[in-house]
Nucleic acid binder design. Structure first.
Length: 572
RNA sequence: GGGCGUGUGGCCUAGUCUGGAUAUGGCACCGGCCUCCUAAGCCGGCGGUCAGGGGUUCGAAUCCCCUCGCGCCCGCCA
């Protein structure tokens, strides 16, 4: 597909040069069905050539010779339409896919290091569905970027410094639980300590004092406090990682926020910022930067970077973290909730003030809410990711039981886990990041149409055909791609051929949802083939070619599921 | 109040950056398809003032301006 596009561009370029428009921009688009595979619109040339676009299209197309992957070039109204040589395409696509296997879709190595920060949840309690958008988008992007040839490191930035974790640590040390945790897991257990400590802190000033004292100790290197806080955080983190593991989210590295205080980078940042002419000291003693000149206005313009006691604030430490990041990568990408936008704008301004030229990139996502409103642990208005996963796996298990009486209970459970967990991931990643999601159980547990099970099912069907073929001693060796001529065969081949282009598009646009979109398209194409074309019962030549196409479909579907972090079971 | 984002059939959603042919797909609903490779599937049908108004353009869901709805932010919290 990439080659086809390049060849079409070349044709246009050549002809345009002849007519004195060599510098014109060539944008090729996808025409409606049956009008071709790529189209060159001639509107923009109308003025320069002082001719009707229809006439231009005719003249240009008359001047182009089809060759390579281009079978036909036709003018249609104001467009020059390019038709692919479908059988040559089939030949190339099948050869590539069957040769490359799991590597199909992989782009050339770029030798560019990307540090992708995602998840970075506060280790104070269990992950809820709202927060789950971060690891899912982040992990999917990590997979896509790797496929696109980048060297990717995913990183979880852990807050073990702020007030929240001190409250957690205080609660764990001082308070006995009077209620049972919802699950026998440290994130559910410790969040109760955290909540109890929070409540106590509000009614008892001496507790608040003690917590403030711990916060001060923490920032000033008191080893015992640091140890206590870290240990509480680690327990919650381990439980969170347990949940993330359930949805195939892999984290390469953890960076603890306290590191930048201990090693002095935060102090360095503060000293540098204080020297800036934009720095001022507030009445109470805290330091701030006036960022009006950075396009930040009104109440947002003051970026306070120390407390009155001189201790650092979140964004100040984030600044030190970013300087550290830049030393370890070529591109830093942060996956963050949209509530972080202002802070990150201030961070970018502060980087400039420090004299750092580099900036991180951001993928911001909107929050997931419930039909009754914003998720809130306090109001009990939450859906925990663990509960959603359990529900999805249960639902999948009852579906498997309904249709598969022939396999062991163990195998059923295995399939149900893959299906249920995949459904959850897909349901969240399918939607554009900046769009808000209202979580609805019936949507999250939808196993039809645009869903993970739909895609997994296509993959399982392909596997099933290949399994039967093997059992009957049939294979695709010596297949002849030129006998693929049915519409379903050619459309599917084209869809498979798109994968490298989709990988590039998703990687460069930092868009994970486009991959989900593509997965659905691919599955639809395969299901149509399955419906209309018989493989095993076809005459030998057709059978071999179709088996090769089914094998390629299986590989492509499997690779796409892999990019989405969704299991690809061989049977369902 | 200010800033950022978002608004597409009853519901969810793609396309918006980079304007182009008949606006993508799903759910729900209606009607068909399992003696044949898994019906978590396939085929057909119904359903649209692309939030509203103005502008730019040969051409606007897409760009610009205004208005409205929704979300997020505007802590010496993280």
């Amino acid at each position: 597909m990439m080659r086809f596009r390049k060849q079409a561009e070349e044709r246009c370029r050549k002809v345009l040069e002849k007519s004195g428009c060599g510098d014109a921009e060539i944008t090729l688009e996808t025409p409606p069905e049956d009008l071709g595979d790529l189209a060159f619109p001639c509107f923009s040339l109308a003025k320069r050539l002082r001719k009707a676009p229809q006439k231009i299209a005719e003249d240009l197309s008359a001047d182009m010779e089809p060759s390579g992957l281009i079978e036909r070039i036709e003018a249609n109204g104001p467009y020059v339409n390019f038709f692919m040589d479908r059988s040559k395409l089939a030949e190339e696509v099948l050869r590539d896919v069957l040769e490359e296997g799991k590597g199909y879709g992989r782009l050339d190595k770029k030798n560019v290091r990307i540090l992708l920060e995602h998840t970075s949840a506060n280790p104070t309690g269990p992950l809820h569905v709202g927060r789950a958008r971060n690891p899912i988008i982040g992990d999917t992007m990590a997979r896509i970027l790797r496929m696109a040839g980048y060297d990717v490191t995913s990183e979880f930035y852990l807050n073990d410094v702020g007030r929240q974790v001190v409250v957690l640590s205080y609660g764990v040390r001082e308070l006995e639980l009077d209620t049972e945790p919802e699950r026998d897991k440290d994130d559910y257990r410790l969040v109760l300590h955290y909540q109890k400590a929070n409540a106590l802190m509000e009614e008892d000033p001496s507790v608040l004092d003690e917590i403030n004292g711990m916060l001060y100790d923490l920032e000033h290197g008191n080893e015992e406090t640091i140890r206590q806080v870290r240990s509480a955080c680690e327990r919650v983190l381990a439980a969170i990682m347990n949940t993330l593991d359930e949805i195939n989210v892999k984290i390469d590295q953890f960076t603890w926020e306290s590191k930048f205080i201990e090693e002095g980078q935060v102090e360095g940042v503060i000293e540098t910022l204080k020297k800036s002419p934009l720095c001022k000291q507030e009445e109470e003693g805290a330091y701030a930067l006036e960022l009006d000149s950075y396009g930040i206005h009104g109440r947002d313009a003051d970026f306070v970077f120390t407390r009155k006691d001189g201790t650092s604030l979140y964004t100040t430490r984030d600044l030190a973290y970013h300087l550290d990041k830049f030393g370890r990568c070529d591109i830093a990408i942060n996956v963050l909730g949209e509530d972080q936008k202002l802070g990150q704008t201030q961070l970018a301004a502060a980087l400039d003030i420090i004299g750092e030229e580099r900036r991180p990139e951001w993928i911001f996502y909107a929050f997931v809410s419930l039909p009754e409103g914003r998720m809130s642990t306090r109001k009990g208005q939450v859906v925990y990711l663990d509960d959603l996963l359990d529900e999805a796996v249960d639902r999948a298990l009852s579906e498997v039981k309904k249709r598969r009486g022939d396999i062991s209970g163990e195998r059923m459970t295995e399939i149900a886990r893959s299906v249920g967990r995949g459904a959850v991931r897909f349901n969240i990643v399918r939607i554009q990041a900046e769009k808000q999601i209202v979580f609805k159980w019936e949507e999250a547990l939808n196993f039809e149409g645009s869903s993970a099970p739909f895609i997994q099912y296509s993959h399982a069907r392909a596997c099933s055909i290949l399994r039967k073929a093997e059992r009957e001693g049939l294979d695709w060796k010596g297949y002849d791609p030129s006998c693929l001529s049915e519409k379903q065969e050619l459309d599917l081949t084209k869809a498979i051929g798109m994968l490298p282009l989709i990988v590039e598009e998703c990687a460069e646009g930092r868009k994970a949802h486009t991959m989900a979109q593509y997965a659905v398209e691919l599955a639809i194409m395969f299901n149509q083939l399955y419906q209309f074309v018989s493989v095993l019962k076809a005459p030998e030549r057709e059978r071999k070619a179709r088996l090769a196409l089914v094998e390629a479909s299986k590989i492509c579907l499997g690779n796409v599921l892999g990019l989405l972090g969704i299991d690809a079971p061989e049977e369902m």
